[in-house]
Design a protein around this nucleic acid. Sequence first.
DNA 1: CGGAATGTTGAGCTGCTTCAATCGTCGTGG
DNA 2: CCACGACGATTGAAGCAGCTCAACATTCCG
Lengths: 242, 242
Amino acid sequence: MATNCQNCPLRGRQLFVDLTSDELDFMKEFKIGELSVDAGTTVLLEGSSSPQLYTALYGMGLRYKMLDDGRRQVVNFVFPGDFIGLQAGVMGEMQHTVEATTNMTLCVFSRSEIWSLFKHQPERAYDLTWLAAQEEHFLGETLATVGQRNGAERIAWGLLKIYLKGEQLGLAKDGVMKLSYKQAEIADALGLSLVHTNRTLKSLREKQIAAWQNDILTIWDLEGLAKIAGTGLDRPKPRPLF
Amino acid sequence: MATNCQNCPLRGRQLFVDLTSDELDFMKEFKIGELSVDAGTTVLLEGSSSPQLYTALYGMGLRYKMLDDGRRQVVNFVFPGDFIGLQAGVMGEMQHTVEATTNMTLCVFSRSEIWSLFKHQPERAYDLTWLAAQEEHFLGETLATVGQRNGAERIAWGLLKIYLKGEQLGLAKDGVMKLSYKQAEIADALGLSLVHTNRTLKSLREKQIAAWQNDILTIWDLEGLAKIAGTGLDRPKPRPLF
DNA sequence: CGGAATGTTGAGCTGCTTCAATCGTCGTGG
DNA sequence: CCACGACGATTGAAGCAGCTCAACATTCCG
């Protein structure tokens, strides 16, 4: 049976701020169903104008853009709690594709309700804008990484960000996290070739800093990782959940 | 004397959608003043929580992030009509620095009014979210460029985007546009070294495709530029103006 | 068992970086 | 009025980080 918002498994996790009971009531109305998809399914397609919006509930996925000649840029990774389809929601069409890389369950919202949210739930509308600004922030950090850092720094940065978010989500513990992606996907996220990504991961493993094999990410030396990445260990700030 | 919103020089330009007279009235209240700064001034500082938000009125600038070791990523270029400080407005602090590269005039808004905008002007709040989603879209395109395209493609892509936006803003005409940046800034925007940027620009010049010298960008072969960039010639969509 | 998908490793090459020197322009102080 | 220094653009040269090509290993699944 579908989860209802009251007992949403994501509520209460460190990454998210609490909802008022009013907001919760609204969300129950806003949510129109649940969607389960297999690994490999395209949830939203670049250029399409889906009538639906989603929040990831279980599972992982990725957002990517394709260049005309087939090169792919992974824009980011989708984890539980991530809101999917904001662009289609406000701009009318998706600017990137969203694909499930594991089996996923998503909460479904009706796009047409977005406007009523702005009209009747200014707090929630504000939260939505907050999320958009947050996405922009993270994309900016990613751009700085891909534009300025070298291979080792990029990989370290990527693993670190993923791990810290996983921690706040309750998906990571004691340096261990399930991470169901392919090396090629990390490579396409960081602007590196697959071969170089593979070699860089190997080097991190040999240095006893972190290993990522068989879909399991193991961090042995978080500080060492942060040092290579050239960044701090700040945890992501709590954010609104839809 | 300060411009008022009615006779805002930006209204009516192709890039922007019209405001209703209601919205215009609100904007007049929302706007609390005007700010003129010299070239080189830092308008907003990464990590700060400015009580003010801005819309660029005249002049150009850039947004950038610094890595801990001093490397700089230019996140994008600021043109007239661009809204500055949304992140500080909703998230409480800026995630990048905004600097004027020419003398600039900016409309000033009070950050504390953002909330009243959500409360009383849902249409404008929606527009704000639209802008945030648009920024996210553009950052995603930039990320794809920096992550996937080679030097020549990146430069071509960058010049093309700038020129097309300039056209819609009335800042470019017949292939000519004033573009007051340094080569180092384009380099830092595209993740290339200054030297390589210089050489790539030279090659575009020698191929009679485009030249950018003495702050003047001249496009001789727009289609050729788009072909190198690996993208189309789509003009930016009209967007809300604040 | 065969084939497809993913990961791993070797080898050679090059696009881009880094270092460094030169040139032109411009504002400043003597 | 000229010398000086600062800054940005330009060009040469050398080196390497990361790419491409290619072969092989491993796992999984029908």
